[in-house]
Amino acid sequence: MVLAPVPSATARLAGLRHELRAAPPAERAARLRELAYSIRRSDLEMISRAGQGHIGGDFSAADIVTVLYFAVLDVRPEEPEWAERDRFVLSKGHAAGILYSALSHAGFFPEAELTTFMEPLSPLNGHPNRRKVPGVETNTGPLGHGFPVAVGMAVAAKLDGSHRRTCVLTGDGELQEGSNWEAAMSASQQRLGRLTVIVDRNRFQQGAATEETSGLDPLDAKWASFGFDVRTVDGHDYEALYQALSEERSLDDRPLCLIADTIKGKGVSFIEDRVEWHHKVPTAEQTAAAFEELTAR
């Protein structure tokens, strides 16, 4: 592995997770928000420096990823392959920037490494590589891969009788890939109760709205008809995300689908909800303005 963990990161992350879980909801939300905006700022700097990236989808997913890594998932940055860790799969691999930023904030590797994002031979490829970046479970990039792999992870846990959790984050446009529905049928058939699919429902794909391209609505009814428990939450409401993601579920429950209603580019007024920011890169002036907004919020 090219990247080394930050010393004592495991204890620090576990301590923070326990504090957040024990905190009153308003305090928990405030602290998660602080972390999420710091993660966004690092991501903005990475993208601005690299001149490449997917800021829209990164920012729509930022709050979900933050809640997972700091309040939900039982992971150990210093032992990224600890057998009983909870699994998180970023199926929308083009949002690698927000994952790298979150992983470095959690101590899987030093934040200074983020400066190499997309540099030649950097471990921080435009899409995540598990062999180069500790904390990445499977290499994604082509869409529709994460959920099938997560099904296998959840089957492995179930065979072990283990309560470790498997969470996969998909884009919404990504659900146009048929492989997801193969996975949905089987996850439900096998009653993978500790598997959670989170849909980053920002309503945009690369070039247009999902509903103008190959519509997904009614998305909740689709998942329900495939045998999932379905919850719809505001994907930027920290407490709602925390409650939904920490819901206790048995090994034999129906799998859970969490539809997170999000805003593409959330956090920067001039980036929010504009399709062109799928992979547009901010200019120096825009970066400064965005950084200011992300600090003020």
Binding site: T138, P148, V149, G152, M153, V155, A156, D160, A183, M185
Partner: peptide, 18 residues
Amino acid sequence: VGIAEQLMVGAGAGLANG
């Protein structure tokens, strides 16, 4: 996994991860 080869191979990778 049923007649679903993409899932079959992906799930194989997930089982190996476990």
